[in-house]
Design a protein around this nucleic acid. Structure first.
Lengths: 259, 259
DNA sequence: AAAAACTTTTACATTTATTTGCATTTTTCT
DNA sequence: AGAAAAATGCAAATAAATGTAAAAGTTTTT
């Protein structure tokens, strides 16, 4: 049984932590929590509301229960955690496409970031990136690391915009690994930000081979701006969620699909 | 229980360290900390505010609690220490040379990094930098942040080399703040790495005013490569260790010395 | 299907905590 | 020593959390 707090008033966060423990131990009713915590019903309800907001529990009539998969930090985990399995598998497939000595471009996005983490054993890589997250993963490695210039976009922690062109246009890259927000046959590779789209487009342009990493939830959805048509893509690495029909259609456009 | 401080007054940093210990031991309320530290509520609040700023704790109504993973943020680690006081003071002087709305360049080096930390209150800044450390400090702020492209140099955690030119040459900067390894009348601004020198040179070239931040231990020493002659410098910000004679000589070269 | 019993929501009053502006003290720099 | 800057304390104004009670919505019982 959870110990009833001694006299000092608890901070709301402490109380909420206690509520979670109570519920885990079987005290799931509002009334029970009121007893246990010595606060008013209204307060318990407000706490439950908060915790539900955070995704830690689900309110039901009369009380609440824990949610099985408590989601972690919302800001970054939202992206890293969502469909993490697929992303990890996609990253592994992509990793096998890279040879020692290659010059590659790494885009922003959580899937590509996953790939960056797999590159520490490769020898003699030259890695060009516009993702500061990827860069921070690669700093400690032996590879040659080149970061494109540009304006910092906080949301994706990437460098974007016209200035990236100044760097990219003077480089020649073997393989570009691009993330994406949307991919359809009609609109091609799409994303939400104009500058980001421009940077992806440029990266594809200076690269011999363009790999797009996208879990199947992205396929068939469109975003605001088109980066490139599908014809600019050489390989699409995705998970088994993609339809056979889509694979055929893509093959017609000379896109090889790796699942 | 944390021992109540003996009568001597604590430095604010000592007090803040103590606060962290108190919270770790369960004294989490503002009132409790006031008792424990014998200072006013306002002071405790201000300390908590600082500590929150540093990401060491999270304030909640009524008190504060430690963040789970205090080292979660430093994407780019930091080395501190040597002559930290001088550097902090130099950084403060430099900060006063910056106006709201300026476009500035921030070089690598610990002194300039110190300056970067002081810029969060300025409004409407555009900050161009080749220092990933400075960039990581500025990521969370409101300012427009532009990172020059280039090859990553692990030792200084800066971006250097010819590629930086592609970005820098298309920009026009009001004020450049450069660190340095050495500064003499004969050799001018010197550093240890050729690529780094080239980047400093370019930054100076595209800037209206060039500020060099150097603690007095750097003055009178030479390094391997010259970035620029002293004539390229407009202002030198340093500490009181600089000789009066040197100041006079520099004045002849049109370098204004700020101590 | 209506009543009873219980739960949740809403609105408001009250308490408690935080912010802000200013005066005072202390420290730092000249 | 004297001026400038920073830190500290105080108190009024502001904001947030909590408790209370009535209204609205469930579920259970009859």
């Amino acid at each position: 049984m959870v110990r009833k707090g001694n006299s000092r008033k608890l901070l709301s966060t402490e109380r909420e932590a206690l509520i979670l423990r109570c519920i885990a131990e079987g005290i799931k009713t509002v009334g029970g929590l009121v007893e246990e915590l010595n606060v008013s019903e209204a307060t318990v309800r407000r706490d439950l509301e908060n915790l539900e907001q955070q995704g830690l529990l689900r309110r039901v009539h009369g009380g609440a229960e824990l949610v099985k998969n408590p989601k972690t930090e919302p800001v970054f985990a939202e992206k890293t955690g969502l469909r993490a399995d697929e992303k990890a598998r996609i990253a592994h497939l992509a990793e096998q496409c890279i040879n020692d000595g290659d010059t590659i471009f790494l885009d922003g996005g959580s899937t590509v970031l996953e790939l960056a983490r797999l590159l520490s054993d490769k020898k003699g890589l030259t890695i060009v990136t516009n993702s500061l997250m990827a860069a921070s993963e690669l700093m400690e490695t032996e590879c040659r690391l080149i970061i494109v210039g540009g304006e910092f976009r906080p949301l994706s922690r990437t460098l974007v915009g016209p200035l990236t062109g100044n760097t990219l246009k003077s480089l020649h890259i073997d393989k570009a690994f691009l993330g994406t927000m949307g991919l359809t046959l009609e609109q091609g590779l799409t994303t939400t930000d104009v500058n980001e789209a421009y940077t992806k487009h440029l990266a594809a342009e200076v690269s011999d081979e363009v790999y797009v990493l996208a879990d199947s939830s992205k396929i068939g959805t469109n975003q605001f701006v088109t980066c490139d048509p599908v014809s600019a893509i050489d390989y699409l690495i995705t998970d088994a969620g993609i339809s056979q029909d889509m694979i055929k259609q893509l093959k017609k456009e000379k896109v090889e699909v790796i699942v």
